[in-house]
Design a protein around this nucleic acid. Structure first.
Length: 103
DNA sequence: CTGGTGACCGCTT
DNA sequence: AAAGCGGCCACCA
């Protein structure tokens, strides 16, 4: 019996490199579109940041979370750029880099 | 044990 | 069309 967090972690772990997914997308793939909040908390505990690319998860506006205490809010932008994701005005073009969910 | 909060989103009026 | 509200899970005090 997997907890909701496990499902969320698995979905986030499946996010391909060079693409980004939104909390709603992860929540939907996890099985419940209303888990968007749970997704945020799941990444908050982020038990394994090495395997869980939380930096690839952005809010609905394509911006990184404000409370992203991952070692610096800018850190996330740096990581995304390092993967090849183009950031526009601190925002990600969801139309171009939004993960289709087709792995 | 209970209450409240949190990296959010979708729906209703 | 816009604005406001609720909802789910887990952890903390």
């Amino acid at each position: 019996m997997k907890n909701s967090f496990e499902l969320i972690y698995e979905v986030v772990r499946k996010i391909p490199r060079g693409s980004v997914a939104t909390y709603g997308q992860v929540a939907f793939l996890a099985g419940n579109p209303k888990w968007s909040r749970v997704v945020g908390y799941a990444l908050h505990v982020n038990p394994d940041p090495s395997t869980i690319p939380c930096h690839r998860v952005v809010n609905r506006f394509g911006e990184p979370s404000q409370a992203f205490v991952f070692g610096g809010v800018n850190r996330q932008i740096e990581l995304l750029q390092s993967e090849g994701v183009e950031l526009t005005d601190g925002r990600v073009d969801l139309s171009r880099y939004l993960w289709d969910g087709i792995i």
